[in-house]
Write a protein that binds this DNA or RNA. Structure first.
Lengths: 196, 196
DNA sequence: AGTGTTAGGAACCGTTCGGTCAAAAACACA
DNA sequence: TGTGTTTTTGACCGAACGGTTCCTAACACT
């Protein structure tokens, strides 16, 4: 028995995530966010508490959407060979740069670099997502001929290594390397990791 | 025939770099910078133009000091085996976390993530430094038994791959992984890259 | 000692920052 | 239709932002 919220929480979250993704936490002003979200100042504070609260909400939204999608790709049984899944995921980095000129990189990676060290809660959220990625890599490796015989310890080590490479490639993309260079780097990395 | 500058340019640059390193460009306010540099507002603007100019100067200072040190390590003929030099460099990442609790990561990597996409000049500076690191890795690889027989194309590919790994590990450190985890990841990565 | 030139310092600029608040509006329920 | 509850809205807040200006201080050179 009260006035219902007029805006869709998820879609405003999506817009806010875009702003934080592109400009970082400090670089994104409330005006930027409000304009993108198309809501009034008061509504934002009522719904998310404050700027940091909104940021945390967008981080979780990223987890729910992008990280989930990446993990689902790594676990996708429709692609029988786990190595193929890993290649697909890695190549999406080059593809983003190539097709959309997307230089935003990975929101998780960005947040780790510029916010995680200053905020325990953000750090925890980031580590949780990193963990999801690593477990996704483990699942993929278990379906890969080169790795399926390894024990879970070794599997985890290899998965973590792939995640390190994934983040390194994301940084590379932000540094302005060409899609072709990134693609070549992916190939080299996956070759040395014995994924392909 | 004029009043000489009272402060040492390099040492104020060092202090400013520390602030930008820890807080990022947007996160570092003029007050933060001035307090660390121990100079007055006017002196900063006289010497560096504006905040962005100071940032660029600190980037170049990082190049002159830290990047140069890393490259010199990779080229150090006193360590005959190039692989050893690479191991040393990588382990310095874990060491920073372990000994100093240093979560600032690599100033270059940080700058790439939060400033390079928005500023062509900063991007250029970052790419130049990335290039220096890669060439350093090439030199080290040339003194490594496992790689010295490769042609320079392959050598470059492997060097770039090591640099990607280096940046990925830097991100890991910022995400809050323990020094022991980072050390293990380094070991895995160098093993797979056939460096050790 | 006088002069030209530049650094230093602090007050000050308008703007924008993140955040608050009170009143109006829109619903659910009776 | 009236009432209670919650959302919306935009005006408003003090503080901090990056940047400028102007006057004084300190030197080099003659």
């Amino acid at each position: 028995m009260a006035r219902p919220r007029e805006f869709d929480l998820n879609s405003t979250l999506e817009q806010a995530m875009g702003v934080f993704w592109e400009k970082g936490f400090e670089g994104a002003s409330l005006s930027d966010l409000l304009e993108a979200m198309q809501i009034a100042r008061g509504s934002l504070y009522k719904a998310f508490g404050d700027k940091r609260g909104l940021f945390l909400a967008t981080l979780r939204h990223y987890d729910d959407t992008c990280i989930t999608a990446a993990v689902e790709l790594l676990c996708d049984k429709n692609i029988p060979d786990g190595s193929t899944r890993i290649v697909r995921l890695m190549e999406s980095i080059a593809l983003a740069v190539e097709v959309h000129g997307d230089r935003r990189g990975c929101f998780l990676c960005n947040s780790v670099v510029d916010q995680a060290p200053h905020d325990k809660e953000i750090e925890a959220e980031c580590k949780r997502m990193m963990g999801r990625m690593e477990r996704g890599f483990v699942v993929a490796l278990r379906s890969s001929d080169n790795f399926k015989h390894l024990n879970s310890n070794k599997l985890s080590e290899n998965a973590r290594n792939l995640n390190v490479t994934y983040n390194g490639l994301r940084v590379m993309a932000k540094a302005g390397y060409l899609a072709s260079e990134i693609r070549k780097a992916i190939h080299t990395a996956l070759l040395e990791a014995k994924v392909v």
